[in-house]
Design a protein around this nucleic acid. Sequence first.
DNA 1: TGACAAATAGACAGATCGGTCTGTATATAT
DNA 2: ATATATACAGACCGATCTGTCTATTTGTCA
Lengths: 192, 192
Amino acid sequence: MKSRRDELVDTALRLFYKQGFNATGIDKILSESGVAKMTLYKHFGSKDELILAALTRRDEQFLDWLTNAMETASPDPRAQLLSLFDALEKWFRGQAFKDLGFAGCAFINASGEFTDPDHPAHRLAKQHKQEIVDHLAKLCTKAGATDPETLAEQLALLKEGAIVTAHVRGITESARVAKTIATGLLDAALPA
Amino acid sequence: MKSRRDELVDTALRLFYKQGFNATGIDKILSESGVAKMTLYKHFGSKDELILAALTRRDEQFLDWLTNAMETASPDPRAQLLSLFDALEKWFRGQAFKDLGFAGCAFINASGEFTDPDHPAHRLAKQHKQEIVDHLAKLCTKAGATDPETLAEQLALLKEGAIVTAHVRGITESARVAKTIATGLLDAALPA
DNA sequence: TGACAAATAGACAGATCGGTCTGTATATAT
DNA sequence: ATATATACAGACCGATCTGTCTATTTGTCA
């Protein structure tokens, strides 16, 4: 059973994601979650803290989903790296997080609203992106890359490009465009 | 001499870009631009219209800057395509729009705040991105690509990835990561 | 049953929001 | 010099924002 705190964080994440952080008022989160205002301020000191909690929840949720999708796809690390882009396409099509749909990357969106790199939400976004790069680098090492860090940065950049293209322009096929480029990179960087 | 309307739009663009659209109030734009409230509402029917005017201004400004930077770089279309990423790096370092600095792409940020694809600001963002792809496709044709549209989409995706990486993670070198990948794509897609 | 903790509803405060309105000052052109 | 357009300053409106407070209800455990 979900605690009142979880109820708040999940509702906040959903509304922040679909309507933006500044555009979403506390009252809407309360009415949609059915939680009283005092309960919110018992768990969180301010709206900013709730924003951070929602993004933290998203961080865990997204990494769990992504790593699971990639591990499930294949035992081969090279195939796992490529399956990143198959997972992205499912996400873009709204098949990954059914209660949220697809409205771009919550962390890119957060960085757009809180452009100051020292803002806690922006810092969390940076950390989230770094975690993904680190995970990719591990797989690149396992796949036998001579420069796994560089390869991981390249793949991560393709991922970000695909996300933005899918969201801003509505082109879900961007995942396949990125996958094609990634295939060429892996062919060149990994031993046959 | 700048008209009052231009004064408004320039100030609005600067504040929207650095602080976000919803977080920037009308009163701040008025006080920083030194324009009276009634003058604003004589030129624009609402804040939403001012947002659109600011983004339209940014669209012109950015495309002018980018096309000029690429044309200036070289007469060779292949070199022009690669110079896209040199221009990006200058932008990331804050050397392109000195009154604005770098706070990500205004259109990616707008799409993050206005996630509904039918929102006028989101539509404008989509249009802006399409204009750039079209411009790249023309250059790809000039460079002799057999499939200029696909190549242009690939380069555009690299551009978006570099922008997001630079903004969210603060890694200005992302422009060079993208350029390396782009070089490989051009080597494979263009006649020697 | 009675005590205690947790969550409820909802009024309230103070600030800020977008937008309207009145009245005054400035500048240009005839 | 007078007419006209434009922009000014700033009061004002209703709505909404975050956050605080009181008083009531609910649920649990002894």
